[in-house]
Design a protein around this nucleic acid. Structure first.
Lengths: 347, 347
DNA sequence: ATCACGATTGTGAACGTTCACAACAAAAAA
DNA sequence: TTTTTTGTTGTGAACGTTCACAATCGTGAT
């Protein structure tokens, strides 16, 4: 016997009230007599009634859906390469737990890298799903057309790694401060020659970190050539090349800060190849802290990004907005410097 | 100017036909004159019309949603610990790409470990979302109540790691064969004393692998004490203890097969502590192949599980079923033995 | 008692789609 | 030609919920 699904009418009949009263109860609306509210609530529990989201949405109410959008190329490339995608994991972690807390559902979708294609991709998903709020992640958080599209459709918007905060909820971390902290940590250990392996000059956060790096060196009163910067492209091979070129020079760095874990692993690899011990001869800090770094030899000191917290915050605000709160707002979430075995004082 | 969203009526008006004709065109139904079909299609494209899923669902049609269900405790624990979750990544990879190909959307949700709670969790999600198909992953793929619930609601069901195939689509890999392959690889290299570090005796796949391990040893004509088995719990510490106990014995293994990557890393750790070189003194194979293993020192030989492929296959079948195909079917997907630097002939 | 007002409850319409069926047109058969 | 069949198009109803508004019930003030 296939079971019919239980609708609001069934509950209404069971509780001896009208649809609308049941609706009021399940939505926590005021002006329902306590006795009635109780009776309805019991009927709901007894029948295991859960409102049908599609119907709710049709009724002109919220969809109880938050959409999280990632870049398709970047994400697929990571997956295809069998590389993990800690970003996605942490995003889901923060998003799903917060959504679940509010009886919302998180839907994760990919959109094209090309700005125009991204816009039509997003438009299609919006039309199909009608989410209450959308979370844009880099690089799409910097695409003004997407924010405009959402505004046009009156859908709440949150951007990760963007810092404006007008019209959209913006969540981000202090990249520059984190770079200062990482650099300061090495300086505090006594390092003088420190190298930064940057990911990409036209990736905003990378530039901010380089700025923080330079600033920390200046703050310590060291000459600017104490801090050399080499540029890779976030990939292993690019970092190997960048690091090799620095390590053979006369002013060999005693410490390296890498813009992500893969490049930090490259530092380990290069050190091994040149007979340098980590951390005795070369300290290494990474700027990503994916799970692998605690199993490497040695485990890496790293800046932990508050990915889950940023998404969680974004969800919280988006849900609040669809419940009537003001849109907009800017939230800086704290990074952490996790000290592991890859950083010690130079010999 | 906030834009109204474009509905099927707008398209109908633009093309000079009725709702229903537009509906027929977008659903690829027969019996529409070619000229009309073309005119409608153009209107759809021009207006950027995308059907509203909620309304579609309300109209009694498909929801174009596939639900993938994971275990809440296990998943959150991984995320919380900052461990990655390659399983989730690969699942999304396989699921999203296949869904996207068919204009479906993948929704990922967590349900409780406790079987009864799992059932009510799933029931609630089903009522809210009304997916066309559901993918159950271990340990929930073995819970008959969940399959029954889905059958009861006439929702197509796919199970990962289950092998029955009646009423549900089952996708799995040959765990026993994979264990035989891993063991055979080591035997082929000349190893005689091989150890298997099992994850958990009451985890079905773990038991199957142990069986395959023993069988490979028997097939090679070696005495059964050539293959010792120690049991951990998939965690680093448990494996350290298990491996230490074997390594100090008189019959020191020259190769270890670990039931997952974390325990394989433990083997690396123990070897290092006892002054054993990997792979010269100890070969190591893992049974998971998460991204980290290629960055470890040395990179690990591993059995790669076809996670993405299994989920992709499941989606494909589920979508076919909601388009009218028969439910059920059993699909074995191929594992792969990836040879890296952690396995060589014993000295 | 009567009135007015706020609190509580119920009713019809609407959301955007598909389904079932009716209407019409064209082609094939008589 | 007339009839039958087949193909094409349109119309009203339905899905399950919420919204807007109407109806009823109390309660305190007059």
């Amino acid at each position: 016997m296939k079971s019919e699904s239980v609708t609001i009418e069934h509950v209404a009949a069971a509780a001896g009230v009208s649809r609308q009263t049941v609706s009021r109860v399940i939505n926590g609306r005021p002006n329902v007599k306590e006795a009635v509210r109780l009776r309805v609530q019991q009927a709901v529990d007894r029948l295991g009634y859960v409102p049908n989201l599609s119907a709710r949405r049709m009724g002109g109410a919220r969809s109880y859906l938050i959409l999280a959008v990632n870049d398709r190329q970047r994400t697929l490339e990571n997956w295809q390469a069998g590389r993990g995608n800690d970003w996605v994991d942490q995003m889901l972690f923060g998003g799903m737990t917060e959504c679940e807390r509010n009886n919302y559902h998180l839907v994760f979708e990919l959109i094209d890298t090309d700005p125009a294609k991204a816009e039509s991709d997003l438009a299609a998903i919006l039309s199909a799903l009608r989410p209450d709020g959308v979370i844009l992640t880099p690089p799409h958080s910097d695409n003004p057309r997407l924010a405009a599209l959402l505004d046009d459709r009156s859908i709440a918007c949150a951007r990760v790694g963007h810092r404006n905060g007008v019209g959209c909820v913006d969540v981000y971390m202090d990249e520059e401060g984190a770079a200062r902290a990482a650099t300061g940590h090495l300086i505090g250990l006594g390092h003088r020659a420190i190298a930064f392996v940057a990911g990409s000059p036209n990736y905003g956060n990378s530039a901010r970190r380089v700025a923080g790096f330079h600033q920390a060196i200046a703050d310590a009163g060291h000459s600017s050539d104490a801090g050399q910067v080499a540029t890779g492209d976030f990939k292993f091979d690019s970092a190997v090349a960048a690091i090799e070129s620095m390590i053979v020079g006369s002013n060999r760095p005693t410490a390296i800060i890498a813009d992500n874990d893969e490049m930090a692993f490259a530092a380990l690899h290069v050190a091994d190849r040149h007979g340098l011990r980590v951390p005795a001869d070369l300290s290494v800090i990474s700027f990503e802290d994916t799970p692998g770094v605690r199993f490497s030899v040695p485990p890496l000191t790293a800046i932990r990004q508050p990915t889950a917290e940023m998404i969680s915050k974004a969800c919280e605000r988006l849900i609040a907005i669809s419940a009537g709160a003001d849109k907009g707002g800017s939230f800086e979430l704290p990074y952490a410097l996790i000290e592991r075995a890859s950083t010690v004082s130079p010999e």
